[in-house]
Design a protein around this nucleic acid. Structure first.
Length: 385
DNA sequence: GCAAATGTCGCCGTTTGA
DNA sequence: CGGATCAAACGGCGACAT
């Protein structure tokens, strides 16, 4: 099996960059994008716009993106908006507009597809591209793809090209923004091994901390460990995977189509709510979540057979419960009843900050389920009767 | 008195079917 | 009739990702 040629493309500060397309006067300024009703910009009679500042924000939201100017001030995605406001009170704050981001997402993906059709979707702002059978030099292709994306959207991206997804994902991040990084197997020791283990997609906070406790900080240090040692520390599956990843080996194919496994809605309340004191309010929120999930299912044409709930207590502990339905559904009232049953199985002795509803075990709504085998009577070999 | 929303996957203990 | 067994399914949950 000859080496593949896989690209990972990552849009630069995607949400923020889309916002800059419509508010060009913000270019060069620190700008952060935050959830909910972060103040909509207001247009003055003379046509100039007034923007909300981070310091004006009150609430419990987090930032989803920030421009590179804002990042220079210590702001990053996932950071509490209130906390970011302390670091950069004068930075501009904009609300998210997912419809706009989805629009530009489609545009950039279509532009890439015109050059290389084997694309794996990885969320709204990144993709893997299988370039193995595409004509042309890697650097040339990277330039062509970036030019096509810019022509279609006015947005820049960063690209890594290597023999597999693992390495390409690392590389697309090495020269950001607007960068290209091409790397062959022979360059792994020099370019990959010096990097921190956390650069590997799949090593998160927990594994990173455990590795650090073992004195393993760089990918090279991980690569130097015996496979058996890692298996002993992390278990058969994950230990072996860590070993392979550190060597830069990864055979996962580029997957060009997939079906959703679950559809969910969740919400964090303005303030923590008490299951008894705020019963009515919680009930209304719960019902609304079920209606929204049902709407999502219907719009996307799915029915689900498993209903699940998720709740987060005021101390941030999270619990889930789910239950199988007798038949798949996309009906809000049916979902609401099942979710209510799940809720009864969970201790409701303290305040809640979040509630969520999920449907899984999905199937397409259109295709009339072929009847389940229903002849339990016929096969009870343990019953001599 | 704080840390969003949505989704996937793997592990593990328990239940169930045979 | 009861016990033992094994695999699949289920349910809870943590880790990780964007």
């Amino acid at each position: 099996m000859p080496d593949r040629r896989i690209a990972h493309l990552d849009m630069d500060a995607f949400y923020a960059s889309v916002e800059l397309l419509r508010y060009p006067e913000l270019r060069g300024l620190p700008v952060a994008i935050g959830g909910r009703r972060a103040g909509q910009p207001e247009t003055l009679p003379d046509g100039t716009r007034r923007f909300a500042r981070l310091k004006d924000y009150v609430g419990r939201g987090v930032l989803t993106t920030a421009t590179y100017e804002a990042r220079a001030l210590g702001i990053h995605s996932g950071m509490g908006t209130m906390k970011a406001a302390q670091l950069a009170p004068e930075a501009i704050l904009l609300p998210v507009d997912f419809d706009a981001y989805r629009h530009y997402s489609r545009l950039f993906k279509a532009a890439v597809a015109a050059i290389a059709p084997r694309i794996e979707d990885r969320g709204i702002d990144e993709i893997y591209i299988d370039l193995t059978d595409v004509e042309g030099d890697s650097l040339d292709l990277a330039r062509r793809i970036k030019a096509a994306v810019f022509a279609a959207t006015g947005l820049t991206c960063s690209i890594g090209i290597t023999p597999n997804k693992l390495l390409s994902k690392i590389c697309s991040d090495l020269r950001k923004p607007d960068g290209i990084t091409i790397l062959g197997r022979d360059e792994i020791p020099a370019r990959i091994w010096p990097l921190p283990v956390r650069k590997i997609n799949g090593i998160g906070p927990k594994a990173g901390e455990k590795l650090a406790a073992l004195g393993i900080h760089t990918i090279g240090e991980l690569a130097a460990r015996e496979r058996d040692f890692l298996v002993a520390q992390f278990g058969r599956g994950y230990g072996a995977w860590l070993h392979d990843a550190a060597q830069g080996s990864d055979e996962r194919p580029v997957v060009t189509s997939s079906e959703p496994k679950s559809i969910s809605r969740e919400t964090t309340f303005e303030r923590d709510l008490h299951p008894r004191q705020d019963r009515a309010e919680l009930g209304a929120i719960f019902t609304a979540l079920c209606e929204r999930v049902a709407g999502d299912l219907q719009r996307k044409g799915y029915v689900g057979r498993k209903v699940g709930i998720k709740l987060r207590y005021d101390d941030f502990r999270t619990v889930t419960r789910d239950a199988r339905l007798p038949a798949p559904t996309d009906d809000a009232a049916t979902i609401r009843r099942a979710a209510g049953e799940c809720l009864k199985r969970v201790p409701l002795d303290r305040r809640l900050r979040l509630l969520g509803v999920r449907l899984s075990a999905l199937s397409r709504a259109g295709a009339r389920e072929e009847r389940q085998e229903v002849s339990p009577q016929a096969e009870l070999p343990l019953d001599p009767a």
